[in-house]
Design a protein around this nucleic acid. Structure first.
Lengths: 246, 246
DNA sequence: ACTAATTGGTGTAAGTGATACACAGTTACG
DNA sequence: CGTAACTGTGTATCACTTACACCAATTAGT
């Protein structure tokens, strides 16, 4: 059973729901609202997306938007689904490189639309965009030979790591930009904070790692190293597990 | 170098910063504000935490809070650090069970304070609470024999997966509660949505998995299965990698 | 002890945002 | 043609953060 609210949201996401028979032709559309709103969010973040802002950009009054969308929340759900775009087409590589490709492309989406990671979800993925990425991730993982349920579990775990790393790294980088601090300055500052506060009795392992210079400024290249390392180890583990299972 | 804003935030987090020499005795304290605000957030979510709400609960006017905290954002940073609480003491098990313990306890914290996962971070972890959990996670991982930098990378990856899974699962569960829907009803509803929209041409792998019944309602027990499976595979991979390195 | 400098708490007000509601104009169907 | 259904507008309400000016309390320095 699907409740009324979900029904309405599904209509907005999939563009189903019949056209009204009478009355003036609508000048706008949910797609148009979402498009403009995505532009604002890309440029200035999700907080800059207000109903007045979107309406103003379209040349209409704030309240006119409520003829297309029951509330701001639904507009944002539609934005999120559309901004996700199309996942990569199936490639020809082995499953590990397919998974890496999925991660890279997902990462690129989050770089283009950082606000995607700040949308509060009210349910599991249901829109065409979300489902397409879900499918593509499962497709890449399916080469590993895992059964369906474990494939889904592996997907959720990996997806979680990608999303949270993208969020953290993106948020911090943007906060630095706003503060007008270079990456090197910020990293040097953080290294100093850690040296000042991470004393060896209270935080022994952290202190050891700090002393090793792990947090000293270093140029990052390629995919984010933290993500790449974890991803490779996870795939190692998945591979060994699948093999041991026949 | 650490900028002024960060300096101020560090003072609030660590409780450094000298007492004012003149003027009336403060009736409140940052700790008191944070305590009350955490209570509100636990009960009603982060959005329910407004300066008026906190001030009202304390029996003071809204503006009085600004004598203790430069802005709401800083209050929330202090809340987040204090709500994290103390990480588990070092245990006696092997490193894998220590890591699992860290994950379980972290998970429990997020269950007790779901709003922690909605705090927008403006920088890397700097408060005593955050650093303690960081240290504890590294300590657990240190038994694997990985070098410091790879330990940190593994930590960030794992931490990301835990946080995002906790966020997604918690958010969805809470949305269901608000809507007055049981888990079984909601899962059945989602299974229906997937069967309706995940057609086999457009989303082949997803459709296959749906057909297998992976999304049909099933009782969950113990730690969240998705998290446990991914965690085990990741640790498998880390272990094999560490062994192959010496 | 006296005075001036500080600091704490209050009251008021400005600015922003979501959205309920009633209304005026528009279109299709009977 | 009349009526029901629909679109966009104007107005108003409510909640939120925070700037600013003020008075009372407290203490450093004399």
């Amino acid at each position: 059973m699907v409740d009324v609210d979900t029904e309405r949201t599904l209509e907005l996401l999939w563009g189903t729901g019949q056209r009204p028979r009478r009355g003036p032709k609508p000048a706008l559309s949910v797609a148009k609202l979402a498009e403009v709103a995505i532009g604002i969010a890309d440029a200035e973040g999700l907080d800059a997306v207000s109903m007045q802002r979107v309406a103003g950009a379209l040349g209409y009054t704030t309240m006119s938007l409520y003829r297309y969308v029951p509330a701001k929340e639904q507009l944002i759900e539609v934005m999120a689904d559309r901004a996700a775009g199309a996942p990569p087409e199936p490639g020809t590589g082995d499953w590990r490189s397919e998974v890496e490709r999925w991660v890279r492309e997902m990462w690129a989406i989050y770089a283009a639309h950082p606000w995607l990671l700040h949308v509060k979800l009210s349910g599991p993925p249901m829109g065409p965009g979300q489902l397409a990425w879900f499918d593509a991730g499962l497709r890449a993982l399916s080469g590993s030979g895992l059964p369906g349920d474990e494939m889904v579990m592996a997907f959720l775990f990996l997806n979680g790591a990608v999303r949270e790393l993208a969020r953290v790294i993106g948020d911090i980088a943007r906060a630095r930009q706003r503060a007008g601090v270079t990456d090197a300055q910020a990293e040097a500052g953080y290294a100093k904070v850690l040296r000042d506060h991470a004393d060896a009795e209270r935080f022994p392992t952290l202190a050891r790692v700090v002393a090793e210079g792990v947090f000293d400024p270093a140029p990052a290249e390629g995919m984010i190293p933290d993500l790449e390392f974890g991803l490779r180890r996870l795939m190692d583990g998945l591979q060994a597990y699948a093999r041991s299972r026949g």
